[in-house]
Design a protein around this nucleic acid. Structure first.
Lengths: 223, 223
DNA sequence: GGAATAGTGTCTGTGAGACACTATTAG
DNA sequence: CTAATAGTGTCTCACAGACACTATTCC
């Protein structure tokens, strides 16, 4: 049994007031050409899925636990975003919230809990702010790599990849510029995808060792 | 007196185990053409200045309090970086640390506590990691604006500004490219600075309304 | 004058952005 | 054939990077 630490006044750390620490996660996904966020409703109010941090637990593990419990999804990659610390942000008491982002293909999520990020319901606490930060973070990730969160099944055509980028960034992109900006980070499989009319698209994989692709993108102004 | 919240098991938030929450701050400054970090030594070990979060206190205020107490500086702008949450990171118990960055002109700091970031002493906890994150964050800020942290006294010449950028980024920059990249975010005062030999430099202010200056910079390869 | 520092003219290469063109499929 | 989708050629513009030049000061 380890000794309990005592400070110069002979008090243990637990003799001082401590906050509760929660994790709250913006689970984002692409649905019908729009980004959607997963919400749960408790007591007539909408919130992001979250939980309190347990003793000896990592923040990322608390996120995974809360998602398994509330949504039944696992195997994700939580990314820590920001600590929300306004003393009165939670009416239950002194609660810090460590906001996280995670991304899941929409078919693993319950459709009933998904709301478009462009028009979510009113949320409790500071959860609307969390969604804003998560959105900005996700967009930054997709500016830097072809599909860092695995929203497209490999292999994919450039149309499919572009469609995901348009969804994530909320704008339409020019096919030619998009193609050229991505090619450096993709590997051709040699296969093609025949589907419907038109010339079949070539299929690509992401290059694993990707310090690549400073993709900046181009808004399609609709000429 | 407000009611204490009780959950479905009739327990208050404080009936569950909670971590202590600390703030630790990498206070960076420019000293002798190098970035330096402020360290304090307690019990033969070097650490970043930090403190425990008090009840009802904002994280940023805890940072300011710790810097006033340990360094006697105030009026800074702490930026939250990341939560370090390894359960065993602090041998005193379960302590989360919210890492922060702050930047202070070196003449306000005790020279005895300043160490070059390129070669710091061995630090306790995960504080070396905090310095790394802080460095990256500071460099990103200086890539985006002329002097976001006020390391140069206004008005300044382009030489002075460039010198600060070279210090922050740890490389030397070409005067011509640097000048052109900065001009869009500066306002000429019409004054000049006469000092020593050579043509006097024109003096500039930062443009306050700065959504400006996507400065990327140029390493001087030493032709 | 010479040395030192500040600032400009201008060429080159790269890459985003845009538009028009060619290529390959289904029907 | 036409319609539809995929992909390329190439022009323009902006800008980083580089080098050489001019400008203004002190000594």
């Amino acid at each position: 049994m380890p000794h309990t630490y005592r400070d110069s006044q002979g008090r243990a750390l637990t003799d001082y007031p401590r906050p509760s620490v929660a994790v709250d996660t913006a689970v984002l996904t692409a649905l019908d050409g729009e980004l959607a966020v997963l919400l749960s409703s408790s007591g007539g109010e909408w919130t992001l899925p979250g939980t309190f941090l347990h003793e000896g637990e990592r923040l990322a593990d608390a996120v995974l636990r809360s998602l398994r419990a509330k949504v039944g999804v696992s195997g994700l990659r939580p990314k820590q975003l920001h600590v929300f610390d306004a003393p009165a942000r939670d009416d239950r008491g002194w609660v810090l919230s460590v906001a996280h982002l995670d991304v899941v293909p929409s078919d693993l999520l319950p459709a009933s809990g998904l709301f478009p990020v462009s028009d979510p319901p009113t949320l409790k606490f500071d959860h609307e702010q969390i969604i804003d930060v998560a959105l900005e973070s996700l967009r930054a990730e997709y500016r830097a790599a072809p599909d860092p969160r695995g929203l497209v099944m490999q292999p994919f055509t450039l149309s499919e990849l572009r469609s995901v980028h348009e969804t994530v960034r909320g704008i339409s992109l020019q096919p030619d510029t998009f193609r050229r900006s991505m090619m450096g980070a993709l590997r051709a499989t040699g296969e093609v995808k025949r589907e419907g009319r038109g010339r079949p698209g070539e299929l690509y994989d992401r290059i694993a060792t990707a310090e690549h692709a400073q993709f900046a993108g181009t808004e399609d102004t609709g000429r």
